[in-house]
Design a binder for these strands. Structure first.
Lengths: 224, 224
DNA sequence: CCCGTAAGTTAGTCATGGCTAACTTATGAT
DNA sequence: ATCATAAGTTAGCCATGACTAACTTACGGG
């Protein structure tokens, strides 16, 4: 029976730390103290304290004054939390009619309270979705994450027609705006023009032409 | 805009205390420190500490060495939590196929994380139920609890036919047993015999005859 | 190569919500 | 009326996870 260390029930805050560390590792390569603090809305000193505890528990490795990295156990715990979050988001929109701009906050709280059984039942009830409402892939039960190679809409050449795959889910207001524009995963858009110096991008969505800023375009991912 | 004090987001533990104080007040009339401690599985000293904080927040009134009583604000908060709990239980069984012996623990955790919007959407999705799967009435959104007058199966006269209205929901094993016997809310049973000195009670459930102990019978409530 | 700045850490504090051990109060039996 | 006992409280401790203020380290520009 060796090799089976039971997981000692991670607290909500610990799960949040692991989640943002995972996301920072994925996007930025490293997870710095200040970045973690910014993502969680806590003071950098609080991160230093938590980093020590996480390292003591073997969830991250930490080289003083350098960054932080998830261990295998930490990565698995992070992916479990991310799976919960995304399954909950998918369930809330599909089964309970939540608008996609309001599922994030709800999932943020429920992900720490839901049992594995509940998550699996939710996933089964809506047909085992593979992505959440914003297009983010849902890790499998055993912690495998299938992250497809995507490019940002900001880098798509003029004239190309691409399919929206995923949008940033942090800003509810932004999500409402995107829904209004019709920019949702699965939608086809054509890039009509792009102004230089991070200028606006002109799009055709359906039969309507829209112009969006470069910052927003960076949050929109399309197939490569 | 006077008279509108915004509620400062009660913590999970605080909600749990208010809930058990409400339940003890309802069943026992008073809520004593030791009873609260027993119901929550904490030490009596911990209750004393929490009682001070709850009194400071105006959620309970407390006379030293006498009992504890919910204020209007405390009662409302308790009923909100109980509503959440029972709506979640009802939703899990109706919409997600949970067996009735496993909804309690799940609801115990979710009730502190779910928003009012989620609770209302769940309730709407399953047709605004008025009781949870164990027959406990669900408080309304504004904190009204319609507690019907019931009697325990242990006091029903021999020969009477009664309808099961509600069963104790604390013990999962007991719930599994009751389900096996067919003793669920809405079911008709006839009391065939009762032995003296808290002896077993003989029942007809459907066309089958069963005998249950007096302790279990006390946990089964039927229409008066 | 050095040095200022940004990033990170430490020290010390606080609130919450637990615990044990020791004390106080209330109450019922004699 | 008193006194043992159960119920309740206080004191003092701990872990978690936040904070501010002050310090240290790393690093890029000159």
């Amino acid at each position: 029976m060796k090799g089976f260390k039971i997981q000692p029930e991670l607290s909500g805050p610990v799960e949040d730390y692991l989640k943002v560390i995972f996301e920072l590792e994925t996007s930025a390569g490293v997870a710095g103290t200040n970045e973690i603090a910014g993502a969680l809305g806590v003071a950098p000193a609080s991160v230093s304290g938590m980093v020590r505890r996480l390292a003591d528990q073997g969830l991250i490795s930490h080289e003083r004054y350098r960054g932080v990295q998830l261990t295998k156990a930490g990565r698995l715990a992070a992916l479990r939390t991310i799976r919960r979050h995304r399954v909950i988001e998918a369930y809330l929109t599909t089964a309970l009619g939540y608008p996609w701009d309001r599922v994030h906050d709800e999932a943020e709280r429920l992900e720490h309270a839901a049992s594995d059984e509940l998550i699996d039942r939710m996933a089964a009830a809506i047909g085992e979705p593979t992505t959440d409402p914003h297009g983010a892939p849902i890790p499998s039960r055993d912690g495998t994450l299938n992250e497809p190679a995507l490019q940002s809409l900001a880098t798509v050449p003029v004239g190309a027609r691409v399919c929206i795959q995923r949008v940033g889910d942090r800003d509810a207001e932004q999500l409402r705006y995107l829904a209004e524009l019709g920019i949702t995963p699965g939608r086809l858009v054509e890039v009509l023009a792009r102004e230089p110096f991070d200028g606006p991008i002109s799009l055709r969505v359906g039969r309507i032409t829209r112009s969006i800023g470069a910052g927003l375009a960076k949050q929109i991912l399309v197939d490569a």
